[in-house]
Design a protein around this nucleic acid. Structure first.
Length: 297
DNA sequence: GGCCAGGTGGAAA
DNA sequence: TTTCCACATGGC
């Protein structure tokens, strides 16, 4: 185990943060920590109590990446206090919305449609292995390939990484970004609505994936991606028995109900709902319930 | 073997 | 406007 350097990280849960489905390339190092990259920099991380131990020299990068400056007390104080949110908060406390590199986040979530978190990890790691610069002799994840690199790939190359029908979209999106037709950096200065619209110009990027990028890369903590899990939770909690609840209504309701830190609330509800199901499945052989059954009555 | 997964885009009603 | 459907792949 290489020597690591400590930095203060109160109110932080590394495991919940890295395993909540917001980032997909970190690997368990078998010693209670993780190995991965912050951008192009290989980093090892391990948490011990209120300290985060990281590769020496990477302290500042890690503090920024893991958003240790986010005021979690203020964020928690903004949450609704209904039972589901309370449960999710108790389960996820210390989970932080991290600051991911723009392209890496956009591209990874582009490949996420109709895929389970485990599959998104597989695709991300396969793309890194196939196209990215290796680190530590190929033992650790490779650097996520830049748009210029993927733009030169073929659709067949990308399909070989398990992308399926997403291959064409990733290729076209990589080309648009590589040639500057869509400027991911310039989106930083746009307001939320304009940023969302600009991201949706990328093929394969719709409102859900654009909101993921806004939340996990652009620091828009109010962005509220609505996927199948969150839709289920919202319908069960707030629209029980009601029909004709459109996606638009759900989106408006979320913005109104969860406020400026809605993205945090969303991530806590998402992670808790997924892990609760996994826990149910693992611990009960006679009471297996699929998600839609758990929430349908 | 059927079902589902951090959806999107285009056609049809 | 809303509704429907194809789109690949892999785990359970």
């Amino acid at each position: 185990m290489p020597r690591l350097a400590p930095l203060p990280a109160p109110q932080f849960n590394l495991r919940q943060t890295l395993e909540s489905g917001q980032v997909f390339h970190w690997l368990d190092d078998g010693a209670g920590g993780y190995r991965g990259l912050i951008g192009a920099r290989p980093v090892r991380v391990r948490q011990q109590g209120g300290e985060l131990w990281v590769t020496p020299g990477a302290e500042a990068a890690a503090a920024r990446y893991f958003a240790l400056d986010h005021d979690l007390e203020a964020i928690y104080a903004s949450f609704p206090t209904d039972p589901a949110m309370t449960d999710a908060l108790a389960f996820c406390r210390g989970l932080r919305i991290i600051r991911q590199p723009l392209w890496e986040c956009v591209a990874t979530f582009l490949t996420s449609s109709m895929k389970q978190v485990a599959h998104i990890r597989q695709m991300s790691l396969a793309l890194r292995r196939r196209f990215g610069r290796p680190t530590r002799g190929g033992e650790d994840p490779a650097v996520y390939p830049a748009p210029e690199i993927l733009a030169r790939a073929t659709e067949a190359d990308l399909r070989a990484c398990g992308l399926g029908f997403r291959a064409k979209n990733l290729l076209q999106t990589a080309r648009l970004v590589a040639e500057g037709a869509v400027d991911l950096e310039a989106i930083r200065t746009m307001d939320d609505a304009a940023a969302l619209a600009e991201l949706c110009r990328l093929p394969g990027v719709g409102p859900k994936i654009a909101n993921c990028a806004l939340l996990f890369a652009y620091e828009r903590l109010g962005a509220f991606p609505i996927d199948v899990w969150i839709e289920r939770v919202l319908r069960q909690l707030y629209f029980k028995g009601k029909r004709n609840v459109t996606a638009r209504r759900l989106q408006e309701f979320a913005a109104r109900t969860f406020g400026p830190y809605g993205g945090y609330a969303q991530q806590y509800l998402f992670h808790h709902a997924r892990k609760a199901r996994a826990w149910n499945a693992a611990c009960s052989s006679t009471d297996l319930m699929r998600p839609q059954e758990r929430f349908s009555q």
